[in-house]
Structure formats: C-alpha cells, structure tokens
Simulated scan of single mutants.
Amino acid sequence: MAYDVTGDGTGPEMRLAESSWVWQRRGLPIAGRRYEHGVTVHGRSSVTIDLNRRCTAYEARVGVDDSTLGLGRFTFSVRADGIRLWSSGTVKAGESAVPVHVDLTGRRTVQLVVEPHSTFDTLLPADWADSKFRCS
C-alpha cells in the first residue's frame, strides 16, 4: 500500500502525518502460522487510510505477533468515517488470528486501531495480517 506522500491518489493510501508507526512486512507470525503480508504496529496505534476510490470491503487477520514470546493482549477495531464498524474483543498472544471483514460501501476513510490491555502491552507488536481492501 502506498503512503500519501508517494501515492497518486487513485487507490488506498496511508496518511503518514495522522498515523502511528507502521511496518509493512512479509511473513507475519501469529500463533505459529506465517501470513504472507500485512502491517505490524505498536500496542497502542491508529493508522488512517484514505480509500480514494469506491471500496466495498476491508479484510485481514489480526493477532499478537509471535515475537512477543507469549506476552500481550490487545483489542483491534476498524473505524470508517469516524464510526466503529468492527471490534475483535480481547486477543491474547498465542491465540489464532481473528478474521476481519468490514463492509466499506460508501466509506471514504478507514482507521485501523489497536488498544493495549496494560501499559506493558503498549510496547509490544500487533499484526494486521493478509490485510487488503476490495476496491473497483
């Protein structure tokens, strides 16, 4: 996915100035399974994405990155145009990735939010694996 400073405005782009630290990567490990691609964020994060076109859905699998060595608990949520459309409930380290499917019909902006369950969890990595937007 492009960043707003390098994108051309024709597809989904991350707003760098309004987003937390994000690492786009391959081989994200969650509960012993590797996912092809996605993003890793800190335990308290918000990533804002401008869709820039008609998109019908956002899909991903969320979980605690295996690099935490069994530590960490988070709640993941997806917001669109300021409205929370999906929430994971508590996701713990070692648990299988939770599937995400959010209808984005008519939406313009998406926020991927992670909230830690303790101060310590803020420091740990959380993953949005196999993250993709379905757009026309």
Rank of each mutant, 00 (worst) to 15 (best):
Y3M: 13
Y3R: 15
Y3S: 14
T6V: 11
G7P: 04
D8V: 10
T10E: 00
T10Q: 01
P12C: 11
M14I: 15
M14N: 12
M14Q: 15
R15S: 15
L16R: 12
L16P: 02
E18A: 14
E18G: 10
E18C: 09
S19Y: 12
S19T: 14
V22D: 10
G27D: 12
P29Q: 08
P29E: 11
A31I: 04
G32Q: 07
R34E: 15
Y35K: 07
E36G: 07
E36R: 11
V39A: 12
G43H: 11
S46R: 15
S46W: 12
D50W: 09
D50I: 03
D50P: 01
L51F: 08
N52M: 05
R53L: 06
R54Q: 04
T56V: 12
E59M: 04
A60M: 05
R61A: 08
R61E: 10
V62G: 03
G63M: 10
G63K: 09
V64G: 06
D66G: 06
S67W: 00
L69E: 10
L69A: 09
G70L: 03
L71M: 14
G72C: 13
R73E: 15
R73V: 14
F74H: 11
F76L: 07
F76I: 08
S77R: 11
S77H: 01
V78F: 07
V78G: 04
V78S: 05
A80H: 01
A80Q: 01
D81E: 08
I83Q: 14
I83L: 12
R84C: 01
L85E: 03
L85I: 03
W86T: 05
S87C: 03
G89P: 07
T90G: 06
T90R: 15
T90D: 15
T90E: 15
K92I: 00
A93D: 14
G94N: 07
G94V: 04
S96K: 09
S96T: 09
A97E: 04
A97L: 08
A97S: 05
P99V: 02
P99K: 00
P99W: 02
P99L: 04
P99E: 01
P99H: 04
V102Y: 00
V102W: 00
D103E: 01
T105E: 12
G106Q: 05
R108N: 13
R108P: 02
T109W: 02
V110K: 05
V113I: 06
V113D: 05
P116T: 09
H117R: 13
F120Q: 10
D121N: 07
T122H: 00
T122W: 00
T122R: 00
T122D: 00
L123W: 10
L124G: 00
